[in-house]
Each structure stands twice: as C-alpha cells, then as structure tokens.
C-alpha cells in the first residue's frame, strides 16, 4: 500500500485518538480520587454536544464559541451531580455505584431523546470546511483543532497534576486518601472539583467534536466504553498512560479499517486492548 495513504490514515488516527484520550482522562481523574467508575461519563459529553446543537439552532452559535458556555455549564452540572448523587455512593457497594450511574445513563438518554428526538445530528463549525495540506497529506481544520486543543488540554491538565498545589492534592488523595486528609486537604471539596473538572472536560470534548461525530441520544454508552478501554489500557489511574492509550486506540482504529476493514477491522482496537490485558495487564505505562 502507498506510504502516503498509510501516513494519511495515521494522521486521522492521531486526531481521533486525541479525543479518546481526552474522554478517558475524565474517567481516570474520577477513578483516581474516588475509586469509582461513572457509567454515565459519555452521556455528559452527549449533553454538551446537544447543548451546542441547541445553541446553534436557536442562536446560530458556532460550536467553538459554544464551548465558552458548555464548559462552565458542564462544570456546574458536574458539581451538582457530585453533590446530590455521586457523593452519596462513595462508600457504598460497587453495585450501587453501577446502578446509580447506569440510572443516570437512562435518565440522560431519555431526556435527550424527548428533547431532541432520535435523529442523527451534527453541527459544522468555522473550521469544518477548511483544509490544511502538507504535500500529499491533508487534514481538516476541525480535526486539527480537536487534536491541538484536545492535546493541549491534556497537556495542561497533566501540568496541573504534576506542578500545582491542586494537582498535588489530587495525587495525594489518589495515593492515600486518609493521609491526604491528615495533610489538611478537604478531600470532599477536591473530589467534587475533580469530578466537575472531568465533566467540564467533556464539555470541551463535546464542543470540539460536534462537527466530527454525529450525535444521537444513545451515543453516551459507546463513548463510555471507549473511555473505559483507554482508562484500562493506560494503566488504571495513570494520567499520562490514558493520553497515550487514546492515541494508540485512534491509530489502531485507523489502521484496522485501512488494512483489514469491515467488522474485523473494527475489532482491531478491541483486539489490541485484549492483547494488552493479556501481556501487560498493568497497562501501557503501568498502574498509578
């Protein structure tokens, strides 16, 4: 196969991978400090995307502009969901958490369905019809923006985690919650902020991808599944690993459909996931 074709597919894979990483990062953050998995994770991204759709439909607002609304809105939503629901199951049985978050999936999906119908939707943004080329290779503006902003957000978050007091607090809670408490860290507050940040991150991912992905009310669980895969592949709770796993998954996706195609090609990312579980169960970069 022509090398430019492979290179082109590789680029697309990387672009998509940035999104997977960003979505997975939220799961990793929440897990790291609460030890809980949120099955409704992807559905919050769906909420963000539909918010962009509504803003576009009613005010003709570009999704990039909408992110200025979607990100804070999702942050506040995250605060509320944490305060009124998630907080209450922190010490509960795992099954309770699964039930609660799956319940949220159902509620969100049904509400989206009632409000927006099951039709596929998608909102173009200013960069959607812009192409950037480099020799024989080209990339769509909205993909590039997603890659850059998504990668940038991932890097920024990584910097926050590694270099700031908030990041140190988050890492402390994830390594030993009781000890963190004894350092005078208000763990409840940090958990709430991190949960909301993870949801706000989905606000960003959602706004970035309204032109790339088609949305439908039931899209959330699939996104959650991808997030879980990235989360495990990256080495449960490993922030950098999650980002790397996102890119790997994106590339595996692209290569799978380029070289194998069809259902079998679509299995390549999952195959990679299973192989990794078998031969490197601690994840790409190891567990936290």
């Amino acid at each position: 196969m022509d090398i430019t074709i492979i290179a082109q597919a590789l680029i697309q894979g990387l672009m998509l991978g940035a999104i997977y990483g960003l979505i997975g990062l939220g799961i990793t953050m929440v897990y790291a400090i609460t030890g809980l998995l949120n099955f409704a994770h992807g559905d919050f991204m769906a909420i963000a995307m539909y918010l962009c759709l509504a803003l576009f439909t009613h005010f003709n607002m570009d999704p990039y502009l909408s992110s200025l609304i979607a990100v804070p809105a999702l942050f506040v939503l995250g605060l509320m969901v944490y305060h009124f629901l998630f907080r209450r199951v922190l010490k509960a049985e795992l099954l309770m958490v699964v039930q609660l978050t799956l319940g949220m999936v159902f509620i969100i999906e049904s509400s989206l369905l009632l409000t927006f119908t099951a039709d596929y939707e998608s909102v173009p943004n200013i960069l959607h019809a812009v192409r950037f080329s480099l020799g024989p290779l080209s990339v769509s503006g909205s993909y590039l923006a997603t890659f850059l902003v998504g990668g940038g957000a991932g890097a920024a978050l990584y910097w926050v985690l590694q270099k700031t007091d908030l990041g140190r607090q988050i890492r402390a809670i994830s390594q030993n919650k009781d000890a963190a408490t004894l350092m005078g860290i208000n763990t409840t507050r940090i958990q709430m902020i991190v949960f909301a940040l993870a949801i706000a991150l989905l606000g960003l991912s959602g706004s970035l991808t309204t032109s790339i992905l088609t949305m439908e009310p039931y899209m959330g669980l699939e996104l959650t599944l991808f997030a879980f895969i990235v989360f495990v592949m990256g080495g449960v709770g490993n922030f950098l690993g999650t980002l790397v796993a996102g890119y790997l998954l994106g590339i595996a996706d692209a290569m799978g459909s380029l070289f194998i195609g069809g259902h079998l090609g679509a299995m390549v990312p999952y195959g990679l996931f299973v192989l990794l579980l078998l031969f490197r169960p601690q994840g790409i970069l190891g567990a936290k």
């Binding site: 140190r168 607090q169 402390a172 009781d178 350092m183």
Partner: peptide, 30 residues
C-alpha cells in the same frame, strides 16, 4: 489540621509515588 493538631499516622502513610519534596510540601500546605 488547620488548628495545628497534626498526626503522623501508623505505617507512615506516605504518598509513595511522589518524591520526598512533594510529600513535604503536602505536609506544609495547611
């Protein structure tokens, strides 16, 4: 903790994946 009642817990409960300085900085952040 903010009142100055500081516990050094049994088993030390360090943050094992953080370096010494980060551990110390966390101690001093109240």
């Amino acid at each position: 903790v903010n009142k100055g009642i500081i516990q050094v817990p049994e088993g030390r409960m360090l943050f094992p994946k953080m370096n010494v300085i980060d551990n110390l900085l966390l101690g001093g952040r109240n």
